[in-house]
Design a protein around this nucleic acid. Structure first.
Lengths: 247, 247
DNA sequence: AAGTGGTCTAGACCACTGT
DNA sequence: CAGTGGTCTAGACCACTTA
């Protein structure tokens, strides 16, 4: 195949996902059956099935026994907004974004990051950027961003991330675009370090956000862990159902 | 095997899950390897693996290559990809949803609700349902739901919302479908009443969720305010770019 | 009847982790 | 080194849907 290191089923999933994103496959369309997929890609059915399952798990496809697998109709719309970074988000809502870089280093990924990004043993260097995020001068969040170093060589020297947008830099310098993401939110209490960084008392309410960002081929390249001040931040999500034949 | 109708891998997953719930396996413990599991249960490794994978997908187990699979810290993850209610969400992740109805009454909407639903002066009656939400018997959230009474006459007498799904009832009895929603999440601290309802200490972390639900014609019909236990609940959001040309 | 996804088998090789 | 999860094969039977 492409000589790439990624497993066959991921390559197949990426290909399907790309077809969907390019509009070759549209919402509601049936994709090739697992058996067809296996034959045309030259793999066993189980491998083709694993590719399909990956997309079903992510809500991109919908499998119906006896019928086939279809491009999901009821996917969240919106979110170009949420798929932008903090800088873009703030400027859209008329606030001035600024960051204080706490640290910027290239290092070995920690266990959580390895698991999230599915990093193979020979590719575990990440650029870690720890920033305090400010909106109009008020600290809002403490954000730890890990980005695969192998796909973004020299990233940390390319811009001053006190003011520059990370996503802007990734796009401009590496052609790297966030295509999809999975985000997880949970409430928690500020511990010592986070509390100091955000200028809040110990035990104050904070929002913990974890985000895994995928490129256009479905490969995760960024893992973000953030702590937002509970009193200064609310996350808004807009949900839309594309097709309403849900029974 | 037992002659049961459910697939083998589900039976095995249920057994593992039961061991965790009974405390035989605790957070951080290693579970039997896939090969051991296959042998002791008399199935192939792929089947045992599928059982483990099911639990990994649900966040109950955590797999570490080269080491084994471990019991994870149990946090309920709600997926925001579909516009479903609590009952559907829980049953999809294999948990038993139940509710305790704290109150069910038809009343004048409060100011916040009037603003959210854009209620005109002559149409301000709402059905208010206050429920404690339980997953597998554990209280997870306290939810206050206001629904426009004018479009759902007699709603509160149509079903027992201790067990019935509200959305199911709206769909079946009134043909009312949630077509889109706006949801807002913020971190906060439990106050007296919420803390008692959820069986947590005062000052514990909670997730405040506000949701405005629209019907297929874009008219808001439901306003929900919820308080989720921060230690037992995480919200997951899948983000995708809608229609973007990625070069 | 033909095709589909769902399940299942009995093997295999790999890269990785511990000792 | 032996053990682990991750991947992959080449088959198989089932229940289901559509025609």
């Amino acid at each position: 195949m492409t000589g790439s290191a990624s497993p066959l089923y991921m390559q197949i999933a990426a290909r399907l996902e790309s077809d969907i994103r390019l509009g070759i496959l549209k919402a509601g369309d049936r994709v090739a059956s697992e058996r067809d997929l296996a034959e045309t890609m030259g793999v066993s059915r189980m491998t083709a099935r694993q590719a399909v399952r990956r997309l079903v798990d992510r809500g991109i496809l919908e499998a119906r026994a006896g019928q086939g697998s279809f491009v999901g109709a009821s996917v969240i719309e919106q979110t170009l907004r949420s798929l932008t970074g903090f800088t873009e988000e703030m400027s859209q809502s008329g606030r001035k974004a600024r960051s204080i870089v706490v640290s910027a280093e290239t290092r070995q990924a920690d266990a959580q990051c390895i698991a999230a990004l599915s990093l193979p043993a020979q590719d575990r260097l990440v650029h870690r950027l720890v920033r305090i995020r400010l909106a109009d001068g008020v600290p809002i969040a403490r954000e730890t961003t890990d980005i695969r170093a192998s796909v973004t060589p020299g990233l940390l020297d390319l811009a001053n991330f006190e003011t520059a947008s990370l996503y802007e830099t990734l796009r401009g310098q590496f052609g790297l675009l966030p295509a999809s993401a999975e985000q997880s939110l949970a409430a928690s209490l500020a511990n010592g370090e986070a509390a100091r960084s955000l200028d809040i008392v110990d035990g104050a309410a904070v929002l913990k956000l974890t985000r895994l960002t995928y490129d256009s081929e479905g490969v995760p390249f960024e893992y973000v862990r953030s702590i937002y001040r509970g009193d200064a931040f609310a996350m808004r999500v807009a949900l839309t159902i594309g097709d309403e034949k849900i029974q």
